[in-house]
Design a binder for these strands. Structure first.
Length: 718
DNA sequence: GACCTGCTGCGGTTTG
């Protein structure tokens, strides 16, 4: 029997209605893996590869052919974006309509009436965000068994975004809690674009038995890649002529087709969008370059997305990672990347947006901007580290490498969140039960009983007041805990900064972080246009704008990203090598040679520690952000002044000698490596933990203390 | 030296 024959009648009818000649390869393989078996499945294929159908055609067939006799949702889908859920729900409704099976999208923008209907008579497919599922546990904990008693499988969309994140840990915890509430494990089906390490993805679904997860990967189909890296040099400091040249190049190359330009930061997006608009206006050409980032209004972003998807008018979105994943935006001619990104996986994901049709090459235009060398130029400029990183990332991309998730992280902030959530779900819980659910069966397996006890004590501290113990050992929410859990902002595990709302002509055009110092009369570039600030309302955090002829780009802030050890190691291979990649233009070749010359001149080809002057050194750690930052903190706590770069530290000290301090570190003679004033609170629930716990959390995720002695030993001997 | 994601229940008012 063919895969098609095994599908239910309504599903076959829908497939014929689509005019499909045959099922795609992954759809056939998914049908085989899903129908009549019960193993977990991962379906990995590029965007628009028919993954959703591959999972749902067999899953729905099972629901149609063997309807359940108890109430409850038949299938659960968890997606990371509201827009994705709305999109997928519309697609599934077409398949389910015929058989009158309800499809319920559920997120913050869905009307309460439709949610109430679904709760009253749960059936069919529920598509939900992690946050809304969290809210169901907190607000309707007692009803969870009824709602999901009959559920046959959960589909996890865009699974690669979940592997290493707080949100991914939250989702895994919710699934464990769902299993326990039902008294039966729910089958997991993961959908993903290209995954770096498939075994880690399997372990995400089944930590105890990763090999039992059935893997379906779309074979080959990798289209040809056309690649170019162009180098640019700025003039004196504060000069933006190189950026203007890149804008001119983008204008010439991209006009007339659909493209994505990843500019790296929201401020940069605004700069290039403004420059490109200006170039169009000067030549009296219609506008086709639009900014796209998270601070712009939903309305503006939808406008750009729809323009891209329609394919009627040529459209280039200058964007941040907002357009890395999510809804289908149609065929893209080329992906441009200004400056190197922080991860190879982001680069790969971005490139996946181009050249998706068979026979059409994917095109990557990479731009590297370096500063003119002056007396005051820093190490990063002199070694041309931006260009070098861009090359290292492209090389690793071509080798199909990408960053693995860090599985040792404790995720203590999310652990606090889940402790509060379980207590709210059940109206109370014992410490033993919390530990069993979260740390033995759930995702917090690297948290040992001692650490878990310390977390509970921190939350139970009368000054914190998040939880308290009743006479029968039951843990309950304290007054502060109740306040936090009752507020709707509780459901997300990630923090949200405070922002101004920007109004123009009475309409909201976006938001700005409050750390911008803004006053009436100041000029602003925002949403690809120029404005004058009319009024700042500090109480309600509202700023009114009027059109203006000039402006400057605002500050959006942000934290520096972590660069992996493998990327830094490759940067050193590039710096010490003498081959010139074929995809570099003349200016980039010139810049690479300048960087390599400077590396030799500093003397790094024979040592890793270079003496600059009395009490000043440059150290080539040759390690990623986590290890390099660990050494930087350890030296800071010994009174060193430290400046960190990709794989390098610039150090100075009035009295101490670097080599003898490194020797002490290499011998493991120092236990205090975190300075007293180090900032350790980054995640949403970190403020409720003790400093010792924050240090433990940082050491498990952002730092690497276990590598420190070896690094110091290496620095002294090589 | 960065980016992104998400959100309930209730009381009041308006409209058909």
């Amino acid at each position: 029997m063919t895969a098609f024959d095994r599908l239910a009648r309504p599903v076959q009818k829908w497939i014929r209605g689509q005019g499909w000649r045959e099922l795609r390869d992954i759809q056939v393989r998914a049908a085989d893996a899903i129908l009549g078996r019960d193993a977990d499945v991962i379906i990995a294929a590029a965007t628009a590869g028919g993954k959703t159908e591959a999972a749902f055609l067999p899953l729905l067939s099972d629901v149609f052919d063997r309807p359940s006799d108890v109430g409850g949702f038949d299938l659960l889908y968890i997606g990371p974006l509201k827009a994705l859920i709305t999109d997928q729900a519309a697609r599934l409704t077409m398949i389910c309509d015929e058989a009158e099976l309800p499809v319920t999208p559920w997120h913050g923008d869905i009307a309460q009436s439709s949610k109430a209907r679904a709760i009253k008579a749960p059936r069919g497919v529920l598509l939900i965000t992690p946050e809304s599922l969290e809210a169901l546990f907190v607000r309707r904990g007692a009803e969870i068994p009824r709602l999901f008693a009959a559920t046959r499988a959960v589909v996890l969309d865009e699974m690669h975004t979940m592997l290493d994140s707080e949100r991914g840990v939250q989702t895994r915890s919710l699934l464990t809690r769902l299993d326990l509430a039902r008294g039966r494990r729910l089958r997991r089906i993961g959908l993903s674009a290209t995954l770096g390490d498939l075994n880690l993805a399997r372990a995400y679904l089944q930590p105890d038995n990763p090999n039992s997860v059935h893997l379906i990967e779309a074979d080959g189909g990798e289209s040809e890649l056309r690649l170019q890296l162009k180098g640019y040099t700025t003039g004196a400091e504060g000069d933006s002529s190189a950026q203007a040249q890149v804008a001119q190049e983008l204008f010439t190359r991209l006009r007339g087709s659909d493209n994505l330009v990843f500019a790296g930061a929201r401020g940069q997006v605004e700069f290039y969008a403004d420059a490109l608009r200006h170039l169009c206006e000067r030549q009296a050409l219609p506008q086709e370059f639009y900014p796209h980032h998270a601070s712009l209004s939903r309305e503006h972003r939808s406008f750009v997305e729809i323009r891209l998807k329609n394919g009627q008018l040529p459209t280039t979105a200058v964007c941040t990672s907002t357009l890395e994943l999510g809804i289908d935006i149609g065929d893209i001619a080329c992906v441009a990347q200004i400056g190197a990104p922080f991860t190879v996986s982001a680069l790969r994901q971005r490139l996946g947006r181009s050249g998706r049709r068979a026979g059409v090459p994917a095109i990557l235009r990479q731009y590297a901007i370096e500063a003119k060398i002056e007396g005051t130029s820093d190490l990063s400029d002199r070694l041309r580290l931006r260009l070098v990183r861009a090359i290292a990332m492209i090389e690793l991309l071509l080798e199909n490498w990408c960053e693995p998730p860090r599985t040792s992280a404790l995720h203590l902030s999310t652990l606090v969140h889940q402790i509060l959530s379980i207590i709210a779900e059940r109206g109370g819980a014992t410490a033993a039960r919390l530990f069993r659910v979260l740390c033995r069966e759930g995702p917090f397996r690297v948290v040992d009983p001692q650490t878990f006890g310390a977390v509970l004590r921190a939350l139970g501290n009368p000054d914190t007041g998040l939880i308290e113990q009743a006479a029968d050992e039951l843990l309950l929410l304290g007054p502060a805990g109740e306040r936090i859990v009752e507020h709707y902002s509780f459901y997300a595990v990630f923090p949200t900064p405070e922002e101004y709302r920007l109004l123009a002509g009475g309409r909201e055009i976006g938001t700005l972080p409050v750390d911008n110092v803004l006053a009436p009369g100041m000029l602003l570039i925002f949403s690809g246009r120029r404005w004058r600030i009319v009024e700042v309302d500090d109480r309600d955090k509202v700023i009114s704008l009027a059109p203006a002829p000039g402006g400057t780009v605002p500050i959006f802030g942000g934290d520096p990203g972590d660069i992996h050890d493998v990327v830094i190691a490759r940067m050193f291979t590039v710096l010490t090598g003498d081959t010139v990649p074929v995809y570099l233009d003349t200016a980039a070749v010139q810049l690479l040679e300048e960087g390599r010359r400077e590396y030799k001149r500093l003397g790094f080809y024979r040592t890793k520690i270079v003496d600059q002057a009395l009490g000043a050194w440059i150290v080539a750690t040759q390690t990623g952000t986590a290890v390099t930052t660990t050494l930087a903190l350890a030296l800071q706590s010994q009174g060193f002044k430290v400046q960190a770069y990709d794989g390098f530290l610039e150090l100075s000290h009035d009295e101490a000698d670097l080599r003898s301090v490194l020797q002490k570190l290499a011998d493991g003679e120092m236990d205090k490596i975190i300075p007293r004033d180090a900032i350790l609170s980054f995640e949403k629930f970190h403020p409720h933990l003790t400093r010792d716990l924050l240090i433990q959390d940082a050491l498990s995720s952002r730092l690497k203390a276990d590598m420190l002695t070896r690094l110091c030993h290496d620095l002294l001997t090589k």
